[in-house]
Amino acid sequence: MKRLTHDQMAARVARDIPEGAYVNLGIGLPTLVGNHLPKDREIVLHSENGILGVGPTPAPGYEDPELINASKEKVTLVRGGAFFHHADAFAMMRSGHLDFCVLGAFQVSAAGDLANWHTGAPGAIPAVGGAMDLAIGAKRVFVMMEHLTKNGESKIVERCTYPLTGVECVDRIYTDLAVIDVTPDGLSVLETVDGLSVEELQRLTGVPLQRAPMLRVG
């Protein structure tokens, strides 16, 4: 089997973002998706600190400390971009104007519960930021994560053991092994990577998987 690299995962997610979409890319792995969006599509990136039309990293010498993204990295503004205050930034999310958000995750449950903000470990300082708002705040919520933990345990679980970010909020999971839809009838495999059968994927995954009608096995 050929596991996808982070960039390959990002490119795979990017393929599913259509022309005209308003998209928020979460902190961590999802920020890579921005590098892979097809150049022939106009896609508007949202940042919850008050930007629509986030552009690429500025050239050296052109950084502006008042033009940063939600990860507090220096960014640029594309032509047509706009600034707005924080309550508007979250209003456009919560009200379903935002089409997609792509989030990282510690765990996703079979029902689409998401855990991605807090390990709950003793002594850990909790910090939530916009994670809970994003989890419930887009028409479609994509998760992008490794399929397995470093110890080889499935990050797709029957019930999340980490504190939840949102309940039944995830629509689709992109991992380094597969693309899986969360449906009312359970998890449905859309794709596996080259050399990975659905049976083998099932062996690695903590919950029962179904085959999507359009399943593409690598």
């Binding site: 300082i125 939530v128 708002d133």
Partner: peptide, 19 residues
């Protein structure tokens, strides 16, 4: 300060804080 118990924290999701 937080670890020493010298400050109280009310953690609020960012959009809820704004709203």
């Amino acid at each position: 300060l937080y670890r020493a118990g010298e400050i109280e924290l009310e953690l609020v999701p960012q959009g809820n804080l704004a709203e």
